[in-house]
């Protein structure tokens, strides 16, 4: 049902959001996201090495977004459209990434969804990753 994370240790799970806009230089609102090492490791532990493309509503379409595929048991617990960005390849490889949003409303929607899913992910990993379950099935004659 769930996969054990024997190496999981409680740590500082923080994520920083930095919104930057300068009309003189660009027509996009830039969102920089950076994660603490502990949090990055935790998210990584729920991902697999396979890569896929994804998109975010309102993000500069000239940028190609790639993410790691996530383990099904955790991915199905996340509901918002922003969940794909949690497994962004650059974010998980380097600890920080950047998205360019065309509008403030799209940015706000993304941040809300992203925070929610981040919380859900960490919460579910802690709650279920160390479960040791044995299932005995016997069919009655």
């Amino acid at each position: 049902m769930t996969e054990p994370h024997q190496d999981l240790k409680p740590g500082k799970y923080t994520m920083n959001f930095k919104t930057i806009f300068d009309r003189a230089h660009a027509d996009f609102i830039i969102l920089n996201i950076s994660v603490s090492d502990d949090l990055r490791e935790l998210i990584k532990s729920t991902a697999i090495s396979e890569i896929t493309e994804y998109s975010i509503l309102g993000v500069d379409e000239s940028t190609e977004l790639k993410r790691y595929k996530a383990k099904k048991w955790i991915y199905c617990t996340l509901t918002s459209k922003a969940k794909a960005a949690l497994f962004d390849k650059i974010l998980l490889d380097t600890g920080e990434t950047q998205f360019r949003f065309a509008s403030a409303i799209y940015l706000e929607d993304f941040i809300r969804g992203f925070k929610l899913e981040l919380k859900n992910l960490v919460q579910n990993v802690f709650k279920y990753s160390n479960i040791d379950v044995t299932v005995n099935i016997g069919v009655e004659k």
Partner: peptide, 22 residues
Amino acid sequence: KYENIEEVKIMDEDEIQKTPSV
């Protein structure tokens, strides 16, 4: 021209255990 910085701290382990999840 603006910058807005926000730090999100995920709950500690005790809190996580208490909260029902999806």
